[in-house]
Write a protein that binds this DNA or RNA. Structure first.
Lengths: 189, 189
DNA sequence: CCTTAAAGCTAATGCTATTAGCCAAGATGC
DNA sequence: GCATCTTGGCTAATAGCATTAGCTTTAAGG
């Protein structure tokens, strides 16, 4: 019987694919093992368990989000960059309904790769905020504001939380427009 | 052997208490049955299963949030009301870490009580927005903005997503201040 | 070629959810 | 006050998933 040739990385990557197909909460070691053509306990040679898999699984989408945001911001500034980055974030969440929730898991401080990916994502936003004249603690607050607004929106949207027959695209545009105004008027009362 | 005297309502209410203690994702029929002093399968006389329990469990916190928001808004208007309602929302989420996530489940349109509770919560926000001159589709967008921003913030906060050593209370104040500015400048470019 | 680390396996255990079918508690009707 | 009938709660059985233990054999490396 030849070996499957798995590594922790391949297991986690396949878990990401599977999560997008069946949903994050329905991601199961049993289904993952079947997908990889391997018996369930064999996975324990590569991941410590389902909880560790979830933790590991957070790294990939975090890095992908960082990439997507960085790409979207390239060559733009101000409200232009803000809209592009927000749209890219939302698009990622919709295209990856399984791995996006995985990314919400906070990094283990000991996981340098995960921490770095998170910082890269935050850095993409921070660069835009610099164009609004925001830095230091203001930038931290403004980044948290961006994350709260955009994550909150896509989470509620994915959960079917917007019931009224009003186009969510419009609402999202208004959200980002409001964010833009909030950033521009940061110092005001 | 005397009966436990359970009803669907008591089961769901105890589930809410248990969820706050052990966390929404760790809420289990087995633990709930033990808590109620009953064998696990007995619960099936009151709820159709774990999925139905989750759905039912969404109603209580939605109604409680509606209450909390309504109370907080009473006697206030404008930015004052906005701050009070946002603070009340966040406080509820922190005090009820188990049932708050339960409330994110979208209502079954056939569940009139659930739908009504959601509308009551939205109504509390809508009333405030009226003070900003927002109604119609603008109000819908603005309500979605409020929900996205505040839910996103408390969700990220609860998940430990704000890693930097910056006081989250300050960040929350800034978020709501930004929301207030966005509402006040709604028509602007 | 031999050794050895480890990838993958089977077997076993435990927890959770779910269904089926039984029994008795307690409400209802006479 | 008694008979009846609904139904809440039970035990037993099944199935799925996670986890651990221990074995086998691959395949890399001296």
């Amino acid at each position: 019987m030849p070996r499957a040739g798995l590594t922790p990385a391949t297991v986690v990557r396949e878990a990401a694919v599977l999560a997008d197909e069946v949903g994050y909460e329905k991601l199961t070691l049993a289904a993952l093992a079947a997908r990889l053509g391997v018996a369930l306990p064999s996975l324990y040679k590569h991941v410590r368990g389902v909880d560790a898999l979830h933790q590991q699984l957070a790294v990939l989408p975090t890095a992908e989000i960082a990439d997507v945001l960085t790409t979207a911001a390239a060559g733009r500034a101000g409200g232009d960059a803000l809209r592009a980055v927000a749209a890219a974030y939302r698009a990622y969440a919709r295209q990856h309904p399984g791995r996006y929730p995985a990314a919400q898991r906070a990094p283990d401080p000991a996981d340098a790769e995960h921490v770095a990916a998170g910082e890269r994502a935050a850095g993409a936003i921070r660069a835009i905020l610099l164009g609004y004249g925001l830095d230091g603690d203001d930038a931290i607050d403004a980044i948290r504001m961006f994350r709260a607004a955009v994550h909150g929106f896509v989470a509620l949207e994915a959960a079917g939380g917007f019931g009224l027959p009003r186009d969510t695209d419009r609402s999202f545009d208004q959200l980002i427009a409001g964010l833009d105004r909030a950033y521009r008027s940061w110092g005001d009362r």
